[in-house]
Design a binder for these strands. Structure first.
Lengths: 186, 186
DNA sequence: GTCTATATACAGATAGAC
DNA sequence: GTCTATCTGTATATAGAC
């Protein structure tokens, strides 16, 4: 838990940004080094291979997800609403990390698929006590996945389908009404 | 509308299969030619560039989607249930084409993003008359997107989270109850 | 229409100077 | 710790034979 070197963090920032904004093909070690302001040799001092760089990103994503789940549990609007609200593109570091890792997963990285699945299980466990049954729980998670999928399609300068704040609020009310046992009693 | 050459179709089959099963990085022109049983030169006779190959795949996806929507409209179980059921991984050619194009979209292909958006609009238009309001319509589409996202994460031999037939049936009932005006009257 | 051979560019990774 | 220079493999694309 010692503070990590600044250059190492800059490299991870750059790698996540390029993966999420421009896609996996663009996220070369060369482009990552340039964006981070270091040379390719400098990058390779901190991450000895592309695989190691990807592993570093996944580790960061899981740490951010664990923090996020603790925040969501204490959210005044309730965990379900907070979870859904943070599933739209907020531009948060966690958001970016999840989209970045999902790009790796979709290009054949088994460790990335496993890391995403672990995070999904953490969310399931946090939200299960609030859902009226397993089907309701899956509905909440699938809507969140759908929001992420739409975020993830937005590459380069072409925006995907967008929902505004009112749309999201209405969607959260509908999902809560369908999935939580005491929705009518609120 | 003349019948397309067999070799051309084989190439598109192979390209879609590799994109969907192994990811964008694996879907090289070399691997596609090998899988289709033609040489690289042979492939390049039908598709003069990678861009042309991608465009060919998108055209096929949109044609399949248009057919699929007509089928869904006439489904005995109702369009919403039929739409959701075909959103899980059925291994259909349309399924494979959509996952394949979404891999291109997530690697920076603007035409792929636009093609997927056009298909999404077709689904919206087909399902809108059945949803009680716009929020309900978006819920249906987002759950479908979520199912696709989970399919899409399944690369190589690592399976993503899976729902069995009973889970899907329960999910369809819950979504229909939340989104269609006459659900109680059934 | 389909093939082989080849040109050009760029990826990941190594060696070794500073 | 960070750099430059370089090796090796592989991607897209072209040229031209059959």
């Amino acid at each position: 838990m010692s503070r990590p070197p600044r250059a190492r963090e800059s490299v991870l920032d750059a790698f996540a940004r390029i993966l999420s904004d421009d896609g996996e093909r663009a996220a070369t070690m060369d482009a990552t080094a340039r964006e981070a302001g270091v040379s390719k040799g400098g990058l390779l001092y901190h991450f000895g291979s592309k695989e190691a760089l990807e592993a570093g990103l996944m580790e960061r994503m899981e740490a951010l997800a664990i923090d996020d789940i603790e925040e969501i549990k204490r959210a005044p609007e309730g965990p379900v609403a907070a979870f859904m609200r943070t599933s739209i593109h907020t531009g948060s570091v966690l958001d970016q990390a999840i989209v970045a890792v999902s790009r790796l997963a979709q290009n054949g990285s088994a460790p990335a698929v496993e890391a995403l699945r672990r995070v999904r299980v953490l969310w399931e466990e946090a939200l299960r006590p609030l859902a009226k049954d397993e089907t309701a729980l899956q509905l909440i998670l699938l809507v969140s996945d759908g929001l992420y999928f739409n975020n993830a399609l937005t590459v380069g300068s072409v925006p995907g389908p967008q929902l505004d704040a009112d749309d999201i609020a209405a969607l959260i009310r509908l999902v809560e009404a369908s999935t939580t046992p005491d929705a009518a009693a609120r």
